[in-house]
Design a protein around this nucleic acid. Structure first.
Length: 319
DNA sequence: CGCTTTTGACCCGCGC
DNA sequence: GCGCGGGTCAAAAGCG
């Protein structure tokens, strides 16, 4: 998806078949109809009324179709969501078992519901006598911050360990670890010079098509403005985590669909979910993109949308 | 030219 | 104390 469309995508499909036509036809249009009626006084008004009724029927049926499609999509969405929840709970259990127990500090886990590792929680350095020797423990203090994990499905043949999450990362190391044949890449946030956030990315042992990104710390700056670039490659999809409310799903009683993907809206949603930390917002971004892309990829949806839009355009040009 | 990536060396904690 | 392994550093190479 292009960045421009991601910035602000608003689809008002007018799905309410029961909304009175008065709201549908702008006053200008009505004035135009009335004016024409005046111009052609001999023309029977009944004809005009019949035309409008026909239009009303047509738009109503379109709206009905779209409502049904929306309900269908919502069902699919709910099914997917529960499936993902199951997958993730299974996955986090597995990861919990796979983590090597060699180091004491690594065993000090947080009570993260995702089974994330609370690494190196103890930063007390009794042996450090001077500032130089304390350098290490200062680094460790970063890891005292939140640790979270994100799984991203990608092409197994793709050797690139980059996980696009909207931030700018600078790779500073790569290492082959003992428990995993695929190398682990180390990234630092390069957007802010003193941002303490680090990221480790490694392929999953069980499923090489899954990249496991471990975030340590919290960003001390805003999301880079080039965030729109976080667009996922077509080969990538997310192992989505918990799903929070999206504007399109907000109300079942109001059939008007608004996919409001304005940036501020996104960050608002992300901030609400601060408990989940970094992966929460990333998951939501992934989710929004997946929803948007599935909407645009659905030929039925696009066809119906095109019909609805062209109908409206025709109405305007004819009047 | 400046930024990023690569990669071997180094540091340090941990287990034996 | 020694070796192992994860994490980091920093020089060289690559890239736009």
């Amino acid at each position: 998806m292009e960045s421009s469309s991601l910035q602000h995508t608003s689809l008002d499909l007018n799905l309410n078949p029961f909304r009175p036509m008065k709201e549908e036809v702008p006053k200008k249009e009505l004035a135009g109809v009335l004016a024409r009626a005046d111009d052609h006084q001999k023309e029977p008004i009944k004809e005009e009324a019949g035309f409008l009724a026909e239009e009303f029927d047509r738009i109503s049926s379109e709206n009905k179709k779209l409502t049904e499609m929306l309900a269908h999509m919502r069902e699919n969405y709910n099914a997917l969501q529960s499936h993902l929840m199951n997958l993730e709970s299974n996955n986090s259990n597995k990861e919990y078992l796979v983590i090597p127990r060699k180091r004491k500090l690594a065993d000090q886990r947080t009570d993260d519901p995702y089974g994330n590792i609370g690494v190196q929680g103890n930063i007390e350095c009794s042996s450090c006598s001077d500032e130089e020797s304390c350098k290490r423990s200062k680094e460790l203090s970063y890891s005292n911050a939140k640790v979270s994990r994100v799984c991203v499905r990608t092409d197994a043949s793709n050797t690139n360990l980059a996980v696009k999450d909207g931030y700018q990362w600078r790779k500073y190391g790569q290492k082959v670890t003992r428990d995993n044949p695929s190398p682990r890449a180390y990234f630092r946030c390069s957007y802010a010079p003193n941002c303490p956030v680090k990221k480790k990315v490694q392929r999953s042992v069980e499923d090489p098509s899954v990249l496991v990104a471990t975030y340590e710390g919290e960003h001390n700056h805003m999301m880079p403005p080039s965030r729109a670039e976080l667009s996922l490659g077509s080969s990538q999809c997310a192992n989505l985590g918990s799903v929070s409310s999206v504007s399109s799903m907000r109300s079942s009683s109001r059939p008007t669909v608004t996919l409001d993907l304005i940036q501020t809206g996104l960050s608002e949603i992300s901030n609400k979910n601060s408990i989940e930390g970094v992966e929460g917002s990333t998951f939501q971004q992934f989710l929004l993109q997946q929803m948007a892309s599935s909407l645009t990829r659905d030929p039925k949806f696009t066809a119906a949308l095109a019909t609805a839009i062209s109908g409206r355009i025709l109405d305007f040009t004819l009047n």
